[in-house]
């Protein structure tokens, strides 16, 4: 007979840690226990990052092995990951071995590969945002969409600081939009999200939600 210990044990640990961390916020005596739990959590999160990286590697190795799937991109990903990992280890070795913690190669990769790639993606995203703002009028031609569109225009117009043409009223409008309705709406949304977060956390503490189905 196969006994399932994992699920009850995981549930018990989850509830216990959750209660400890939660009580640590309100009960000073529980702060030390909370700290221990947080440290363990940090280590596990770091280990999880490594596990995630290896999982990423394994997935793309399978894709490379699978002739039906598009393994070319996976191959590039695996090569880039292993190369960056090797260069990072080399820089760490140099820092420990030679006392030269400049992380030259790692910085080079970041400066000349990762950062340009990501900023380029950000630029493309800017185009996508502009496009989606206009496409909204085509997808949902209603008052909300029109309002959304003109608020975007007003905020942009209020941001411009063109010396030739002064738009003081536009700046005031922008400031009012950003500071009153946007903040008020965002605060209301955040309150709702906070309540949802509390509910989600309590469900996990109660064992109702178990995303750790062992």
């Amino acid at each position: 007979m196969k006994l399932k210990f994992r699920a009850p044990l995981a549930t018990a640990i989850t509830i216990a840690v959750g209660l400890v961390v939660l009580s640590g916020y309100f009960i000073p005596a529980a702060a030390s226990l909370r700290f221990i739990s947080l440290r363990v959590g940090m280590v596990l999160a770091a280990v999880a990052l490594l596990v995630g990286v290896f999982n990423l590697l394994s997935v793309h190795f399978r894709k490379i092995a699978d002739k039906d799937s598009k393994g070319g991109y996976s191959f590039i990903l695996v090569v880039a990951l292993l190369t960056t990992l090797g260069i990072g280890i080399y820089d760490m070795y140099k820092a420990y071995a030679f006392g030269n913690p400049n992380f030259e190669w790692t910085n080079w990769i970041f400066t000349y590969i990762q950062r340009p790639v990501e900023t380029s993606l950000m630029a493309v995203m800017t185009v996508s945002l502009a496009y989606s703002a206009t496409y909204l009028l085509r997808r949902k031609m209603n008052y909300l969409a029109i309002g959304f569109f003109f608020v975007v225009l007003l905020v942009l117009l209020g941001t411009i600081s063109l010396s030739v043409i002064s738009f003081p009223i536009l700046e005031d409008i922008r400031s009012w939009i950003v500071h009153v309705p946007a903040v008020g709406g965002a605060r209301g949304l955040l309150l709702g999200i906070a309540l949802g977060t509390i509910a989600t956390g309590l469900r996990i503490i109660m064992g109702s939600d178990r995303p750790y189905e062992g």
Partner: peptide, 13 residues
């Protein structure tokens, strides 16, 4: 600092 908010809280403490 790993662990997000928890890690940050730990770092703060």
């Amino acid at each position: 600092i790993p662990g997000g908010a928890a890690g940050l809280l730990s770092f703060v403490i």
